[in-house]
């Protein structure tokens, strides 16, 4: 009882856990949305002149969206692992803070990698516009950035798994 009322830096355990979940999805979501917006505008430009390229461009345009997806999964795992949605769940501030820290890899790496992947994909789109045969290469290069988002995602999950469950 006493433990559940304890706070770290003014926040109880549950709040730290929610914050982690929010950050994991919030930052990656923002990153992906901005990145897709950037790529999509270039794609729109290409499609305005050459609608036939839609099939090739959709992959490149959607690629920076995966970070948001990883963030969303991470947020969900936090809610699931620690039964945050179950009424009456109590978390020690220590555990809550660990959850928050565990969410950071995907949140930060996801945000930054999404923005930069957006640039790579936009460049890829303009490359495909000129060389329609090279769409595969453009996607591969975009995926290289994706690697680090995936690694960030895995790091977050490993950290979440390592935290002792109540």
């Amino acid at each position: 009882m006493t433990e559940s009322l304890a706070t770290w830096w003014g926040l109880p355990g549950l709040a730290w856990a929610f914050l982690g979940s929010a950050v994991a999805y919030g930052l990656t979501g923002i990153g992906s949305a901005l990145a897709i917006a950037g790529v999509a505008r270039v794609s729109n430009g290409v499609l305005s002149e050459d609608p036939g390229k839609f099939g090739q461009l959709i992959v490149l345009t959607a690629l920076p969206g995966t970070q948001g997806f990883y963030g969303f999964v991470t947020a969900f795992l936090i809610l699931g692992f620690f039964k945050l949605l179950t009424p009456g769940t109590v978390l020690e501030p220590r555990v809550g803070f660990q959850i928050f820290l565990a969410s950071l890899p995907i949140a930060v790496v996801g945000l930054v990698s999404a923005l930069y992947q957006g640039k790579v994909c936009a460049a890829g789109v303009s490359m495909v516009a000129k060389q329609p045969g090279e769409a595969g290469k453009a996607i591969t290069l975009g995926v290289l950035v994706e690697t680090y988002a995936v690694l960030g995602f895995i790091a977050s999950i490993l950290l979440l798994v390592a935290i002792p469950k109540p």
């Binding site: 901005l34 505008r41 729109n44 430009g45 290409v46 936009a122 789109v125 303009s126």
Partner: peptide, 26 residues
């Protein structure tokens, strides 16, 4: 959104659509 993206990445956006269509026209 444009403003944030521009400030965050030091490139002024807005011409993305133009660039896309130009890459085809080129």
């Amino acid at each position: 959104v444009e403003l944030e993206y521009a400030e965050g990445l030091t490139e002024d956006s807005g011409y993305a659509f133009a660039t896309g269509s130009i890459r085809v026209l080129e």
